[in-house]
């Protein structure tokens, strides 16, 4: 028998529970990626080379090394320096850190598209650099890059199975355990695929809603 419905219904609740872990890792990871990415993008615009160059180097370094290595590094190597993280914490931190570098490139494009006149008007009105970013630059730079950020949300989500490598009980790891316990992989792996498909479609629809909301808000 290629497909066992009884087994399917039996493992579905277990996988649904694991899907919650996947969603949590995705959301926490993406919040980190979005905030840290913005910070990186702004720091890379600093007039001081002492800030700009090290941050730029760090971003390039993280972006150019594999996520899996970063996950292993946080989980297995950090304890050697006295920083012990749970598998879940190491997982979402690595996802957030890795994707923050992609987000920072997206923000950078948004920031560079702000016309020079906006900066000059801010200087002429004597706005502080902080207020200039908060009230003038960021509100104009972010709405156009929301679709690109949304793509990275979905991409980050699809990379969460990497966390199975440090035994986070997310969808993939749970499916592997179910498969090896019952010697049946067809159902758990298929269900994992379906979960990912559904959640990707839902988040893509959500991103479109956010885009529409941002567009309407401008009046």
């Amino acid at each position: 028998m290629l497909w066992d419905w009884g087994y399917t219904w039996e493992i579905l609740p277990v996988l649904a529970g694991a899907a919650i872990v996947t969603i949590e890792a995705t959301l926490v990871g993406f919040v980190i990626a979005a905030l840290l990415g913005l910070a990186f993008a702004i720091l890379r615009m600093s007039p001081s080379a002492w800030v700009r160059l090290p941050v730029g180097g760090l971003v390039e370094f993280i972006r150019s090394t594999p996520l899996l290595i970063q996950i292993f590094f946080l989980f297995f190597v950090f304890p050697k320096f006295g920083v012990t993280l749970s598998a879940f914490t190491a997982g979402f931190l690595a996802l957030g850190l890795h994707y923050s570098t992609y987000c920072s490139e997206v923000y950078r494009a948004g920031l560079e598209n702000i016309p020079k006149g906006q900066w000059e008007a801010s200087i002429a009105l004597n706005l502080s650099p902080w207020v200039t970013f908060r009230d003038i630059i960021i509100p104009q730079a972010i709405p156009p890059v929301v679709p690109a950020l949304g793509n990275y949300l979905v991409a980050l989500f699809k990379e969460t199975p990497l966390l199975s490598a440090i035994a986070v009980l997310e969808l993939m790891q749970t499916a592997k355990i179910l498969g090896s316990e019952n010697f049946r992989y067809t159902e758990p792996m298929t269900l994992v695929g379906i979960f990912f498909l559904l959640l990707s479609l839902i988040s893509a629809a959500g991103i479109r809603q956010v885009e529409r909301w941002l567009k309407n808000r401008r009046g």
């Binding site: 906006q118 008007a121 009105l125 706005l127 502080s128 207020v131 401008r218």
Partner: peptide, 20 residues
């Protein structure tokens, strides 16, 4: 002009007096 396009005419005039 260099007005702030995401702010109303009034908000354009209020931004700096409030924050500066």
């Amino acid at each position: 002009f260099n007005l702030f396009p995401h702010m109303s005419a009034l908000k354009n005039c209020m931004e700096a007096p409030v924050t500066v």
